[in-house]
Design a protein around this nucleic acid. Structure first.
Lengths: 336, 336
DNA sequence: TTGAAAGCGCTAACAC
DNA sequence: GTGTTAGCGCTTTCAA
């Protein structure tokens, strides 16, 4: 910058002004400086600017695993939203393990970022004090904590009630749930099971605990395993509500291996509307949670907090959802 | 740091020495400083350190789209490998568009990172001069450029020859290829098609250009579209070699919609061994490209370049591959 | 083995 | 409108 100033015959401050688009610079000066910048191939040193401004231009995104399609798609959306706001995104993987989530919340990386978007899965709902951090934070998921933190989520109860109602409207009565967390007091799984029960109650369908299958991690393989268990236990069911699409993809595979036809014998609906859900055989009915909207909202909120002009009160936003019926509940839809 | 020095009654330099594990510090001093650090809750300011050292502790990873399962899994592996080396990973999406790849190569973000791992897809093989950059760079993919840059890839020709031979060994003769790039002089697609032709030639199977289906982007939907095209053109085929798994997942779906049985009527094999490939119906035969090995090698090479202790010559490494036969070529394998 | 002082490249405050 | 100066928090000479 000093060299540029010398080349242009102005002070270092003027160069800074030009680089930062400070309005009160004479066009002539500006032109001269820009010339010099071009000639010398000058580029501002971001690190120095950050040091001076106490900002890094980076925000963190902490999720369990980026290789899970839902989080990959979320990361994509967050990176795009960040771009709009002029920040880059540093992704951290927690594997949904409590200690690694705490590390994400308190570790050295928090110093490299101006704020964090965090999807907590391993933290207990009694550990809210961990969320009282001294940097801007936005949580993804239901307000399971009492901590005064911004939350962005979707209407889990209403959405899963709608998904269950879709199955009921098709005449299904024995609807299994995959991925429940009965050991949790409050989390996404709990809320989605609540929506399921509401739908059952409204339709006058008796609740059978044997149909509620629990597993902590919502992966393809655990979805398959839960189906295997039900089959070997001899639990009868004519529909499956998987609490996310990875579970439902695993379930689909297991049902096929057990010779059960989808949807003739068993209808199945998932949650998340990952891209793969449209390409399974049969294609997967699911709930679209408005991932892009969630990402944009979260980034916008975080940027407001970073700029220091958010409201005093923590905010709570629910993105719109949509039930997407496909072949796994409706049957063969014919050539695309 | 100044406060810590004051608290411990030592100079700021001693604090720095302690923080950086400089060996020649008297245990007594060290203890006193550590006490003060604990008491004051001090943490080094990474930005300041970076400014001083000219390092950022960040490496870039530029891929087309993180929401494509292969790149999501690659990113996962690179983040893990980076962790081993004490660096974080900044992911950039180029959408395989030339201008965005150039932006990734030359943009402002290159200033926030110490080096870049880059998977070029949009750049022409005649634009090697763009790769003559002044920072550490490792390319993912074949050495399609003459630029003196480290490359990490897999044995595309040999691997796709092996995949094709697998189909041939099953008695298939009319093997379609999905995702060719006939307009390219040299890229991954060209190499994989070369392996295909080698296998055909070795088996004495005539080459039919009508079976080579071209599409730039290897997505699920383009895979489906290519199958649709072949069917509507009346091109007969008894096997499909999709140049990646996304294409093969799309193809699988399209074949189903056209009422063609897999593998009875059409066997199909993909490339990448993404996690989903094991969960489709039927499960997808594919080629495992050693993604973890590629990621680790690339990060290690990059870190060597950053440290300035790599060889003068550019390196070229090929990861080991493995053909993974599943139901889409072998037929129903029975319950897991 | 430790301390003092300079300076990484930039922006903010203030003076001109 | 533009220049001067101080200093962000750290590491790195160099001297003690």
């Amino acid at each position: 910058m000093r060299e540029v100033a010398a080349e242009a015959g102005v002070s270092i401050k003027t160069v800074s002004n030009v680089v930062n688009d400070y309005p009160h610079v004479r066009p002539e000066m500006r032109a001269r400086v820009e010339q010099a910048i071009l000639k010398l191939g000058y580029r501002v040193n971001v690190t120095a600017r950050n040091l001076r401004q106490g900002r890094t231009g980076l925000i963190g995104l902490a999720v369990s695993e980026i290789s899970l399609p839902y989080f990959a798609e979320l990361a994509d959306a967050v990176i795009r939203a960040g771009q709009e706001h002029g920040v880059d995104v540093l992704i951290e993987q927690t594997a949904a393990v409590r200690d690694r989530e705490i590390e994400a919340l308190t570790g050295a990386r928090r110093q490299m970022t101006d704020g964090l978007i965090f999807s907590p899965l391993g933290l207990g709902s009694d550990e809210q004090d961990l969320l009282e951090v001294d940097y801007p934070l936005v949580l993804l998921g239901e307000r399971i904590f009492d901590a005064p933190v911004d939350h962005v989520t979707m209407s889990n109860v209403v959405a899963s009630r709608a998904a269950t109602e879709h199955l009921i409207s098709l005449g299904r009565r024995r609807i299994a749930v995959l991925g429940a967390h009965p050991w949790e007091q409050m989390d996404t799984a709990v809320l989605r099971v609540r929506g399921y029960r509401e739908a059952l109650d409204a339709a006058g369908i008796p609740f059978d605990p044997a149909l509620i299958r629990s597993v902590k991690l919502w992966h393809r393989e655990t979805g398959a395993r839960l189906i295997d268990e039900m089959v070997s236990e001899g639990v009868g069911f004519d529909a499956v509500f998987a609490l996310n699409d990875a579970l439902s993809i695993g379930a689909l595979r297991a049902l096929y291996l057990h010779g059960m036809r989808v949807p003739e014998d068993v209808a199945i609906i998932g949650f998340d509307d990952v891209q793969d859900a449209a390409y399974t055989t049969p294609s997967l009915s699911t709930v679209s949670p408005g991932t892009a909207e969630i990402a944009e909202t979260a980034v916008t909120m975080l940027m407001e907090r970073i700029a220091g002009n958010g409201p005093t009160q923590p905010r709570y936003v629910e993105a719109a959802f949509q039930v997407i019926p496909r072949e796994s509940t409706l049957g063969r839809l014919g050539p695309a």
